[in-house]
Design a binder for these strands. Sequence first.
DNA 1: GCCGTTTTCGGCCCGACTGTTTTCAGTCG
Length: 567
Amino acid sequence: MSNEEVARAFREIAALLELKGDSPFHARAYEKAADAIERAGDLVGLAREGRLTEIGGIGKGLADKIGYFLATGTIPMLDELRKEIPKGVVELARIPGLGPGRIRALRESIGIESPEDLQSALAEGRLSGVKGFGPKLLEDLGRALRLWTESRGLRLHRAGRRDAEEVLGALLALGAAEAAIAGDLARWREIVGDLSLVASHPSPSEFLAAAASRFPGSMIEGTTLRFSSASGLPVRVRVVPPSSFGAALALAVASPAHRAALERLAEERSLTLGEDGLLEEGRLLPARDEAALYAALGLPLLPPEIREGSGEIEAALRGPLPGLLVREEIRGAVHVHSAWSDGTASIREMAEKAIALGFEYLAIADHSRSAGYAGGLSIERLLAQGEEARSVAAETAPFRIFHGVESDILANGALDYPDEILEALDFVVSSVHSRFGLSREEQTARLVAAVRNRFTTVLGHPSGRLLLTREPYAFDADAVWDAAAETGTAVELNAHEERLDVDWRELPKLRERGVPIWIGSDAHAPDEMGDLDLAVHIARKGWIGPCAVLNTLPADAFAEAIRRKRR
DNA sequence: GCCGTTTTCGGCCCGACTGTTTTCAGTCG
């Protein structure tokens, strides 16, 4: 059993205790223990030697629970809590605006046990009598519930990919000649609502029948098998003979707009694009791979992530497409947190991991002093951290460590350290962490002021959206991008999955304005640092090439680039 | 539930905001 599994169980206990209404400190003890467990080394070894209580935050009681969990795989207390707190109540806690207190009030006063209950109570006006629930709160809850409803059948990219890869493996194991992931997932959409795959087999009907018995609850419709994935996403697998695999895959990957553009192009060439591929005078042109289909239309094979119908076909017909960013070109792990604020590891540990991952430099940016909840750094601690960063750097050379901060943007657009302190740092990530509810005008002015600040190197997670959870705050993106272009300020593409905060449709606007991108890992633990795949593919979706990305620069050029604005 | 003692219980990271109150509880980051 891994430390993560134990930590996850403890976090669940903490969440359930909170919902139950136990002392918040009781719940927090489990949360702190979960943090400690993640950071602890060989948990199993420590348990064997009876040394679990040497871990800070683990006392006798928790040590016993860990030992029992490691031995049996269960924690009776957790099982009890799961029985006690209905799933719907846990789901309620995911709705912004609903914390343990309000959920308890809703349960006790009118018996709300799930978001569905809340929805009908809201519709029937049964909430207006509940103490503490005024008109504004009801309005906010209504909005949050709508977002929750819309998000219900959706998954973040990585969750969708996990499911799809499981299906893919099963198809290959069943003897598919070829199989591939298609649909939104293949185009690296950040959110998916269904999964699409294509498989080939010499006898499609035979394979469909075999696959149908492999996936419970599946249905065959023509050449397509439908069922539900592990996490409940609808899956469709199209099965074709090998000679049609390329065409079928290309069609299943294409967005509707891309497909329409392909159809128009086919028409211009007196061809027809049908379900099985290109037809010339009623005769099917074989396309064993996607490149064959594109070639028949006079196109190079386009990367899946740009097949969105946003001008890629026209551009490809005009000439070679610009080179898109690839993961290996990222040389620096930037916007990284350490245990100085709310990260789990020391600067040295983060540096060692970055080196192991093949990075050439690290840009440390812990939380600033306004972020008390995250252990934000006072001026004294920030300066002390700088000392430590330099001393670690002296030992890790030629690997470089840049010392900066993730400074809160205050409501008036100011950063939360005096200029002379910011001056001493290598760079500043300026981010909004509060006051999401400002008016569009106020929020725009705030962001523009932060961008214009000569110490702001990069605007961190600019929109404030949390995928599937929270809408972006209201602001005029064009005005902010203009200010960034004018002042040479970079904009962050945050690699934390929920925080993939700049919509890919905005990226071309940044590219056209010449605004540098910075792919910030926002890592809080060593293991999160290398996880840049999704962000890189989102950058590619926005047609971002390596030149536009600051942390593809070699260390010296990066150092120069992050200082340039201040002169 | 842990921790550190003021050795047997009280404090635990906190500041700002918001809406609902009419002095504060709940949420958020």
